[in-house]
Design a protein around this nucleic acid. Sequence first.
DNA 1: AATTTTTATTGACCGCGGTCATTTTTCAGT
DNA 2: ACTGAAAAATGACCGCGGTCAATAAAAATT
Lengths: 194, 194
Amino acid sequence: MTTAVQARTLKTRARLTEAARDVISETGYAAMRVEEVVRRAGVAKGTFFAHFRDKDALMDQLIGERINAIMDDMEQLPPPSSIPALVNALTPLMRFMTCERYVFEIILRHSGAAEKKEVGPIAMTFGRFIEILSPWMKTSHLRQDGSPGMLAEGVQAFMINAMALSFCALHNDTPLEGRLQPYLELWLLPQGKN
Amino acid sequence: MTTAVQARTLKTRARLTEAARDVISETGYAAMRVEEVVRRAGVAKGTFFAHFRDKDALMDQLIGERINAIMDDMEQLPPPSSIPALVNALTPLMRFMTCERYVFEIILRHSGAAEKKEVGPIAMTFGRFIEILSPWMKTSHLRQDGSPGMLAEGVQAFMINAMALSFCALHNDTPLEGRLQPYLELWLLPQGKN
DNA sequence: AATTTTTATTGACCGCGGTCATTTTTCAGT
DNA sequence: ACTGAAAAATGACCGCGGTCAATAAAAATT
C-alpha cells in the first residue's frame, strides 16, 4: 500500500485553510465566503468541497483549533480555589465562544455529533472540557455529593446559558462573568437545607 | 387614524401561515421551502417577504405558537411534588423542542433577541417558562437557598443541556427524561455538606 | 367621479452554498 | 519512456433564501 494521499492534496488543503484564516482575521467568521477563500487559494470552487464536506466543516476545524489553544492554557492552571477564580479560569474560553454570534451558533451546532463517525473538532473539545474540569471539582471546598463529571457538566450547562444570554438585549448589560458566578455558587456551594 | 392595515393584508398573511402549516405537517419543519409555501398560497415570492422579515420569522411564529400551546397545558398543572413529577411536567415541552434537530436550532437561535424591539414569539416563551416555573420552586421540599427565579433558570439550563445531548450519538441511548432527572436532583435537592 | 397618495403585490434578479460530469495530473506496472 | 488506472481539480450548473424597481389595488383628497 502506497501513499494514499498525495502531497498535492496536503498543499491544497493547507492553502485553503490558510486563505480562510486570512479572510477571517480580516472580516470575522460570519463574513467568510467560500468563493472568497477559493479565490485567494487559487483553486476552483469544487476543490473546496473535495477537501471539506461543507462550509461548516471548515468552521468546525478552525474554531476547534482555537478552542483547543485556549484549553491548552486552561490545562496549565492550578485547580481554582474559589468560585471567582473558577470563573476567571473559564473567561477566556467564554470570551472567544461569544466573540461573534455566528461563532456561538457554530459551536452549539457542532457540540454534539449526530454520528459517532463524524465527531468533529468542536465536539471533541466538549469532551476535553469535561476532562479538564472534573479534577477541579474534587477540591474539598466544593460540594462532594455529586460525581465530578456531573458537577463539571453542570458548569458547562451554566456557561452555555450565560453565553446565550449575552446575545440577548434584555440581559447584556451585565458582563458574562458576572452572570455566571451566582449560578456557579448555587451549583457548587449549596448553602441551605431543603 | 383609520385602519392602518388592510383586510387584504390579513387574508394574505393567513393564507401564507396556513400553507406553511400544511407543508410542515406533511414534510416536517426542516423541509419547508418558501417557494412551496407561496406556491400553495397562490402569491408571489416577494409577497412572503413583505409579511415576514425572513424564513426564520415565520418559523419563530409557528414554533412559538406550538410552544405556547404546550405551556398552556403546563400552566394548569399543580406544582410538582417531586423531581420525577417535575420531569414529567417538562417532558411534553422537551419532546416538541427536540422533535427535529432543525426545530431545536431555531429555538436556540431565537431564545434571546438581539434587539429589544425584535423580541419574537419564541423569546417570549422563554420568559413565560420562567414565570411558570418560579412558583413551583417555592415548594418546601426543594432547596430554599436561592431565589425561585434563579432555580428556575437553572432548570432551564439543564433542560437545554439534556436536549442538546439527545442529538448526540454518544449519549442518545438514554431517553431525555432519564438524562435530566439526576441533574435536577443535584440542582434542586443538594444533599451533602461542602 | 376624477385624481393623488398610500399600501400591497409582483417576478426577474442576485448571492452564495453545494453538486457532478468532465478534464487534468499523478502514479504504478511493464 | 509508454500506458492505463486512480486521484485531484475544474467550472458550469442548481436550489433556495432574499431584494427591489415596477406595477396594481385600495384609500384619501379634490
